[in-house]
Design a protein around this nucleic acid. Structure first.
Lengths: 154, 154
DNA sequence: TATTGTTATACTCTATAACTATA
DNA sequence: TATAGTTATAGAGTATAACAATA
């Protein structure tokens, strides 16, 4: 009932969750369904752009992915060669580049998102609507609290 | 209120959670507090053994970490050189090795766990006890359901 | 012949440092 | 001088393949 007891239960769950999300062949499976082979971080770029709903600067993509700039540059190189994204000069700042999805890229990102969403749907489809809502609310709060603490470390 | 809507909210949260858990300097900070520098997967081995509460075979450690055997062998090499674990032949099977924590290893694992647990404690210390319990319950169910689905893919 | 673990090697992902170009 | 991005290089983490020892 105390904090310590709760956390002793929650922590292993979180570790397992991290493993499930990162190490399972979830992304590879989605690639099979979508039929467009891509490396994982490249797919993350695509999904980041898709969820943003607008072109983003290279630096902004890096910030949202929580990786470092040069890494994104390399990923964009491959995505551009595959004609999934396009780099255009930011009209407001000649130094910056705006990265936008091509039609092919937007389509692929959408299908990937659909595939991954569908996979998660199965995990909660037997839940009551109340449990789903409660879980979504508490999970959001938890992630926010964790992120705030991470931010404090800087 | 529909499945799709819930998931559209939950999925980004999960992605953020994965980032927080993996990419934040959580482990590095714990190392600073504990004062024993270690690489992340090596620490995972230590914690895996500590949570098991008993010596484990190399293969069993790999299974729990969801990595491949040879990788664990390499990690154990370093941990053994640092006198944190010890490999003994399994009396029941001469092929197998039982890996056990040394006193130093058990101490370090305990301090690491304490440090990391303490960090998470802060994230939920303002929550009501009911919310904490509910969250723990639903999170456990969610992870179980996800893992079951992952297992089905094999 | 199947299983446990090890060695050797290669691949994926990400970071750091040095640089170019605009501001 | 500071900022946006790129290029080149290095490092951490993990996988695959080939092998040795025991079952």
């Amino acid at each position: 009932m105390s904090d310590g007891l709760d956390l002793a239960v929650v922590l292993p769950q979180l570790m397992r969750l991290g493993t499930v999300l990162n190490r399972s062949q979830l992304v590879e499976r989605a690639m099979g369904q979508v039929g467009l082979p891509l490396d994982r971080p490249g797919l993350t770029v695509l999904i980041t752009l898709r969820m943003a709903g607008q072109p983003l600067r290279v630096g902004e993509i890096a910030a949202r992915m929580q990786v470092v700039g040069p890494h994104v540059t390399r990923l964009l190189h491959d995505l551009e060669r595959a004609d999934l994204v396009r780099r255009v000069v930011d009209p407001n700042d000649q130094r910056a580049r705006l990265v936008e999805l091509t039609d092919a890229g937007a389509g692929a990102a959408g299908r990937y998102l659909e595939s991954i969403l569908g996979w998660f749907t199965g995990a909660v489809e037997d839940w009551s609507e109340e449990d789903r809502n409660t879980f979504g609310r508490l999970l959001g709060r938890f992630v926010n609290d964790l992120q705030a603490r991470v931010a404090d470390l800087d």
